[in-house]
């Protein structure tokens, strides 16, 4: 990460997004920092409710005008996004920074044709006529591999299949050649072949336009396939982050171990049950004291005393560019990791 900091496109520091609700303050994102260089891809993983979508929406300023409390700093190409007036932020939205939303059926307007919605994204940032914008939309649909784009242009989202809607979302996000693309679970609920096609598409587009990509996913396979760096989130925190190779080959803490263990892989024969992390995600209103993962952690016995329960671990560097939030001693980690590699699992 160090050498990239020279050319940083996006820099997020100590981001917090809190929602006041009747039940209390929901701390969905609670002190998150990461940065991203042009042409690179960051994968954000973590189980449902860990704050992935909330983070990505914060970058686009989509919490403005709601009750959400956003703090920290987000700078995009040197511009502080959190302090930017909405009017100016709007010029970046969809133009410099674009987003592919989770669940394209509900993210597309049911009453407008797909073509019109893509064309609108183009027209907002370019002074062109309707016809020109539609031509551009057709071009994009073609680019993302929708057959008969000229005809499909005039269809409504409900007439598209799941995979095609996902492609349409991508076309809409890419219509202005954004410098940062945020893809929130772009392949969830798609079958494996379509999933592979879409990832391939994103890689191709990145090569073509040199965009930076944030890809949010539950699926570590997607991260391994497409990302350079990875950020593992748990209960609004980063618990481990670094280069994909480092994190995947030398994971340093129990939650990441669990995630990796639950990942389907070639050597894991089909039909065999995947390991899952026992327990359920913690409350974001009153998160567990100490390490937020401790109620579900199988390794906290290896930490001396009750540090896991009483004191919150801080993110610490284990090797250059590899950060981990865990009390375990380096020696213990190495031992556990060694056992895992030996196939104890």
């Amino acid at each position: 990460m160090t050498e990239q900091q020279a050319r940083t496109l996006l820099d997020v520091r100590d981001l917090r997004v809190h929602f006041p609700t009747a039940d209390g303050l929901v701390r969905s994102v609670d002190g998150l920092s990461f940065s991203l260089a042009p042409g690179r891809t960051l994968g954000i993983v973590g189980e449902s409710g860990s704050g992935k979508s909330v983070t990505s929406q914060a970058i686009l300023g989509l919490h403005r005008g709601t009750r959400a409390q956003v703090s920290g700093s987000i700078s995009f190409d040197g511009v502080d996004l959190l302090g930017l007036p909405t009017r100016e932020l709007r010029r970046l939205r969809g133009n410099e920074i674009a987003m592919i939303f989770q669940d394209p059926l509900s993210a597309l307007h049911p009453y407008y044709t797909v073509g019109r919605q893509i064309a609108e994204a183009y027209r907002v940032h370019h002074s062109v006529g309707k016809r020109q914008a539609l031509a551009r939309a057709e071009e994009m649909l073609d680019l993302v591999g929708i057959p008969n784009a000229g005809r499909r242009l005039h269809e409504y989202p409900h007439q598209f299949s799941g995979g095609m809607r996902q492609r349409a979302m991508i076309a809409m996000a890419l219509v202005n050649d954004p410098r940062l693309l945020i893809a929130d679970e772009p392949t969830t609920a798609l079958d494996v072949t379509v999933q592979a096609q879409i990832l391939e598409l994103m890689k191709k587009l990145q090569q073509e336009f040199g965009s930076a990509i944030i890809v949010i996913t539950h699926d570590l396979g997607v991260v391994a396939d497409i990302a350079d760096d990875v950020l593992v989130m748990y209960a609004g925190h980063a618990v481990e982050q670094g280069a994909v190779a480092d994190v995947f080959y030398r994971p340093q803490m129990p939650y990441t171990w669990g995630l990796l263990a639950s990942m389907p892989r070639v050597e894991n024969p089909r039909g065999q049950r995947l390991a899952t992390i026992a327990g359920s995600p913690p409350s974001l209103i009153a998160p567990p004291a100490g390490c937020r993962f401790h109620p579900r952690c199988a390794y906290r016995g290896l930490v001396e005393g009750d540090a896991c329960v009483t004191s919150a671990p801080q993110l610490a560097t284990t090797e250059p560019g590899h950060l981990v939030r865990c009390h375990l001693e380096a020696a213990e980690r190495a031992r556990v990791l060694g056992n895992m590699k030996d196939g104890v699992r």
């Binding site: 609700t21 009747a22 989509l62 919490h63 403005r64 005008g65 709601t66 009750r67 909405t86």
Partner: peptide
């Protein structure tokens, strides 16, 4: 009784 009544729009 309506879970949706608590949601809010943004800008």
């Amino acid at each position: 009784l309506d879970p949706r009544s608590d949601r809010a729009g943004g800008r």
